[in-house]
C-alpha cells in the first residue's frame, strides 16, 4: 500500500484525504500546524488549523477560508481521520495525526517538549511514522531550564534598570516575545514593545491568553518616563534605526538576543549583543530524542535542521530514518533578512 503521507514539491501530501500539511505552494486544502510564515503560507483555497492558532493566522494571512479544530477532536477527510495535538511550540501549534485503517502517521511541524508557560504543553502521540524537525539536532544543544532563564533575564534587566538604562531584547513576534513577557518580573519596571510584537500581543489577548501589561513604542511616547524599561523587539527592530532611540546620551541600552543559537559562542559573538539567552521554541537534543522515542514509531522522517547527521544518529539507534526535502526554515538567528521563520 502507498505511504499515507508523501513528500512533494508543494508540501507534505496525503493522497487518501487529498490534502496537504503545511504546503508552501498554493493547493486546494491545507492543514496547518501553526502560524509561523514558513508553515502557514498564503494562497491556499481552504485552511484547517486549531482554534487557538486561528486568530494569529487570520491576522497574518488576512481574509482566508479557515476552518478550525480543537486539540484532540477527530475529523474525517476522504479515507482518513485527522486530529490535532499540542506541539508546545507556540500558542495553538499542533502535531497533525493522520490515521487510515489503524495505521497512524504524525506530522509534528515545529515542537518543543518543555512547558513554556504559554503554549499548551507538548503531548506525545503514538504512531507508526513520525515526521520531525531537527533544527537543533546535535548533542551540543541543551536548553537552560525555564526557571534559570527567568532568573538570568530578570537579573540582567534589574541591573540595567538600576543604572537607568533600557534593556533591549530581540525575539520573534509570535511565541518567543510572549514567552519573555511571561518570564519577566514586572516589579522591576515597565515593559515596552515594538509594534510587530504588540500587534501579536493584541491578537493573543483578544482570544483570552493572559499577558502582562505592555506599552507600545510610538514616536510620541515619553521615553524619559520609562527609563530602565524592558523593551521587547523583533530581531530586525533590534538591529535597525528603531532601536537607537533607547541609547540615551552616555547611557546606551543593553542589548540581548533570545535564541537557541545563543548556545554557541561563535553565534553569540556574531550577533554582538551584550547578552545571549539560550531560549528556543524548538526541541533541544534531549527533547528531540525523548519525543521520538515516546511516539513508538519505527519510521522517522526528518524535515529540516541538521537532517543528515540526525538521520544517521536515528539509524544508529535502530530507527528507519529518512531525510525529506521541505522549505521549512527552523529557527534562524539571522531572521532580519528573511522575514520571520520559526
Amino acid at each position: 500500500m502507498a505511504d499515507l503521507l508523501t513528500f512533494t514539491d508543494r508540501g507534505i501530501y496525503c493522497e487518501a484525504g487529498d490534502f496537504y500539511i503545511d504546503p508552501w505552494r498554493p493547493v486546494d486544502r491545507a492543514l496547518v500546524t501553526h502560524g509561523h510564515a514558513d508553515h502557514a503560507h498564503e494562497g491556499m483555497a481552504r485552511y484547517l488549523a486549531t482554534d487557538i492558532a486561528a486568530p494569529v493566522m487570520r491576522h497574518r494571512l488576512g481574509e482566508i477560508s479557515l476552518d478550525t479544530i480543537r486539540y484532540g477532536e477527530t475529523r474525517r477527510i476522504g479515507d482518513v481521520t485527522v486530529s490535532f495535538h499540542p506541539a508546545g511550540h507556540v500558542p495553538g501549534s499542533a502535531q497533525i495525526r493522520v490515521e487510515r485503517k489503524g495505521e497512524v502517521w504524525v506530522a509534528s511541524g515545529d515542537y518543543k517538549t518543555i512547558d513554556d508557560g504559554l503554549s499548551t504543553p507538548f503531548e506525545p502521540v503514538r504512531c507508526d511514522a513520525f515526521i520531525t524537525e531537527s533544527t537543533f539536532g546535535l548533542p551540543v544543544f541543551k536548553w537552560t531550564p525555564q526557571a534559570e532563564l527567568a532568573r538570568d533575564l530578570n537579573a540582567w534587566w534589574a541591573a540595567n534598570a538600576a543604572e537607568g538604562r533600557f534593556s533591549l531584547i530581540g525575539a520573534y513576534a509570535l511565541g518567543k516575545a510572549q514567552r519573555i513577557l511571561t518570564l519577566a518580573d514586572t516589579s522591576i519596571g515597565p515593559i515596552l514593545t515594538h509594534g510587530a510584537v504588540e500587534n501579536t500581543n493584541e491578537v493573543l489577548r483578544a482570544q483570552g491568553i493572559a499577558l502582562p501589561d505592555t506599552i507600545r513604542v510610538t514616536p510620541d511616547l515619553d521615553l524619559k518616563a520609562h527609563a530602565g524599561a524592558l523593551v521587547v523587539a523583533t530581531p530586525p527592530g533590534l538591529g535597525g534605526p528603531w532601536a537607537r532611540r533607547f541609547n540615551v546620551a552616555g547611557n546606551p541600552a543593553s542589548t540581548a538576543f533570545a535564541s537557541g543559537w545563543m548556545a554557541l559562542r561563535g553565534v553569540r559573538r556574531r550577533r554582538a549583543a551584550d547578552r545571549g539567552f539560550i531560549m528556543s521554541d524548538h526541541a533541544d537534543w534531549p527533547g528531540l530524542n525523548a519525543a521520538i522515542r515516546e511516539t513508538g514509531a519505527r519510521k522517522i522522517f526528518v524535515t529540516h535542521g541538521y537532517t543528515s547527521i540526525f538521520r544517521r544518529w536515528l539509524e544508529s539507534e535502530g530507527f528507519e530514518a529518512h531525510v525529506v526535502s521541505t522549505e521549512y526554515a527552523g529557527e534562524n538567528v539571522d531572521a532580519d533578512d528573511e522575514g520571520e521563520a520559526a
Partner: peptide, 22 residues
C-alpha cells in the same frame, strides 16, 4: 558515539567548546 561528536565539532567550530557542551 564518537562520529556524532566529530560531526558536531566543525559546526561548533571549537574543540573545547564542543566538549564542554556535550
Amino acid at each position: 558515539p564518537l562520529w556524532l561528536f566529530e560531526e558536531a565539532y566543525p559546526i561548533v567550530g571549537d574543540l573545547a567548546e564542543t566538549i564542554s557542551l556535550v
